[in-house]
Design a protein around this nucleic acid. Structure first.
Length: 215
DNA sequence: ATCCCGAGGG
DNA sequence: CCCTCTGGAT
């Protein structure tokens, strides 16, 4: 049920539920968000936040990361999983940021996707949170699952299709915060395995709850 | 066994 | 489209 009224109601209810708490990854500098997001692949934000203080204090600048020993980075990020690829990507991307982008995190999807280890999800997060680009949709695992359950999408798991469908129904100035709230709601209430529909205040507009199949 | 704010390669 | 990369929590 993706009527404009339902979408507006859900957007407002989410604002009431999660007034601030927009990004749950801890970071100070722009590139720190970029690399924290790389580390968050198939890993909880909580665990990422446990390793990034060590990583960014051991290598406190982009230059330090670019010249870092990959094995040492691997050790620091080991517990986040996929540690070999993540460590390699962080060092290589640091070099590319310095060599080709003047040490600044680029502000276009095209440039971001050229960075090693940066895919669509990370690029969208950076565009929204660092560059405040309007109309950004971060179609991550929580966003895809919850908007699918709500009936805001056709149930597709393809991030590009979900992005397009959500961009079509969300106000551009709301879309980025909406996606962050999907993450918060996905952790607290609308979990993948056992969604807590009993405590969910989005029930009135949720296909999964109201539909005949799910619950 | 399944999931966690994925990315890259075939 | 598929597969692989990887550890930790439930």
């Amino acid at each position: 049920m993706n009527s404009p009224e339902a979408v507006r109601a859900v957007v407002e209810e989410l604002k009431a539920l999660y007034p601030d708490g927009i990004c749950s990854l801890h970071y100070q500098k722009d590139y720190e968000l970029l690399f924290s997001t790389r580390l968050s692949a198939q890993c909880t934000d909580e665990r990422v936040n446990q390793v990034t203080p060590t990583l960014f204090s051991r290598f406190p600048t982009l230059e330090a990361l670019a010249n870092a020993d990959v094995a040492e980075v691997e050790e620091i990020v080991h517990s986040t999983g996929f540690f070999r690829a993540k460590a390699r990507d962080i060092v290589a991307a640091s070099r590319m940021l310095l060599d080709e982008y003047g040490g600044k995190v680029p502000n276009t999807m095209d440039a971001l996707l050229k960075l090693p280890g940066v895919g669509r999800k990370t690029a969208n997060l950076v565009l929204g949170d660092i560059h405040h680009t309007p109309g950004v949709v971060v179609a991550d695992t929580h966003c895809i699952r919850i908007t699918g359950r709500l009936g805001f999408t056709d149930g597709s798991k393809d991030p590009v299709k979900v992005e397009q469908q959500l961009r079509a129904i969300l106000p551009p100035e709301e879309s980025n915060d909406f996606c962050h709230r999907m993450v918060l709601h996905g952790r607290a209430v609308c979990m993948a395995r056992k969604p807590d529909c009993a405590s969910c205040t989005l029930r009135p507009w949720c296909d999964f709850y109201n539909g005949g199949d799910g619950q």
